[in-house]
Simulated scan of single mutants.
Amino acid sequence: MILDFNSALYQFGLIAVFVFALTGALAAAKRELDILAFIFVGIVTGIGGGTIRDLLLQTEKIFWIADPSYLSVCITASVMTYFFAHWVIRIDRFLLWLDAAGIALFAVLGTSKALSYEATPLVAILMGVISSTLGSAIRDLMLQTKLVIFEPEIYVTVCLLGSTSYVLLGLLGINEVHNILLSSSAAFLLRVLALHFELRFPSFKLSKLQNREIRKQQNKP
């Protein structure tokens, strides 16, 4: 049972990396870059977050060096996007749901890996968020576009929910299989609700603060 579950997690992890790489390559397509740029951006998006996590945790080997399948998946997704970008764009909505599932799972698995390296719960939660979001952040910096993690839509919060849930359920003694399923499902559900109902956090409005200060100045004797 555990073996089958771990195998399923591994396979879905590869699919998630594939989808992350697709989104990176699609961003390269919008900038009309060449195939090498597609591959580079796809790789960074697909495995960038996990790479930073492993470097910070000082693991024996970076995960994609230990298992090059992740790198192969990124290259395949990027090349496919270069030649079939118009078709990939047509399933953009479907990719959005897969991406939601991917960030939910990666947040949980990143947290789990950090805890296995004896990180404190707070650090482990941060490692989970890094695993699932930093690849897209690096992609956006490379392509000089607005960072998706700074958009008002609920994205980083999804990862925080998954990571925090995993830590809390672990402290409550929930077994690993149920913990991963429950934590990633909660994060995925939040992302689905955010997308469906267009949930947003209110943005800080500097103009309101400025207007308040102006009124204070005007009311002074």
Score class of each variant (00 low, 15 high):
1 M>D: 11
3 L>K: 12
3 L>A: 13
4 D>R: 05
4 D>G: 10
5 F>D: 04
8 A>M: 12
8 A>F: 11
9 L>T: 06
10 Y>W: 14
12 F>H: 03
13 G>C: 06
14 L>W: 08
17 V>E: 04
18 F>D: 06
20 F>C: 05
20 F>I: 07
22 L>E: 03
23 T>W: 00
24 G>H: 02
25 A>L: 02
26 L>M: 14
30 K>G: 08
31 R>K: 14
31 R>Y: 06
32 E>I: 00
32 E>W: 00
32 E>P: 00
33 L>T: 13
35 I>K: 04
35 I>G: 08
36 L>D: 04
39 I>L: 05
39 I>W: 02
40 F>Q: 01
41 V>L: 04
42 G>L: 09
42 G>I: 07
44 V>T: 13
45 T>N: 11
46 G>Y: 01
51 T>G: 10
52 I>T: 10
53 R>W: 11
54 D>G: 04
56 L>V: 10
59 T>H: 05
60 E>Y: 08
62 I>V: 15
63 F>V: 09
63 F>K: 12
64 W>N: 09
64 W>Y: 15
65 I>F: 15
66 A>D: 13
68 P>C: 04
70 Y>K: 08
74 C>T: 14
75 I>H: 12
75 I>E: 08
76 T>Q: 01
77 A>E: 06
79 V>C: 12
79 V>M: 12
81 T>W: 14
81 T>E: 15
81 T>I: 05
81 T>H: 11
88 V>R: 06
93 R>L: 11
94 F>D: 01
96 L>R: 14
98 L>S: 02
99 D>W: 06
100 A>F: 08
101 A>E: 03
104 A>K: 04
104 A>W: 04
111 T>E: 02
113 K>Q: 11
116 S>T: 07
116 S>M: 03
117 Y>E: 07
120 T>D: 12
124 A>C: 07
125 I>L: 13
133 T>Y: 03
137 A>D: 02
138 I>R: 06
141 L>S: 08
146 K>R: 14
151 E>F: 00
154 I>F: 13
158 V>Q: 03
158 V>G: 02
159 C>K: 03
161 L>A: 09
162 G>R: 03
163 S>D: 04
163 S>T: 05
165 S>M: 13
165 S>K: 00
167 V>F: 02
167 V>L: 05
168 L>V: 13
169 L>I: 01
170 G>W: 08
171 L>G: 00
172 L>A: 11
174 I>R: 00
174 I>V: 14
176 E>K: 08
177 V>R: 06
177 V>C: 00
177 V>Y: 02
179 N>R: 09
181 L>V: 12
184 S>E: 02
190 L>G: 05
191 R>M: 06
191 R>E: 03
192 V>I: 15
193 L>A: 15
200 R>H: 13
201 F>H: 12
202 P>N: 09
202 P>L: 10
203 S>D: 03
204 F>D: 01
205 K>C: 08
208 K>I: 12
209 L>K: 07
213 E>C: 01
214 I>Y: 09
217 Q>T: 11
220 K>M: 10
221 P>R: 02
221 P>Q: 03
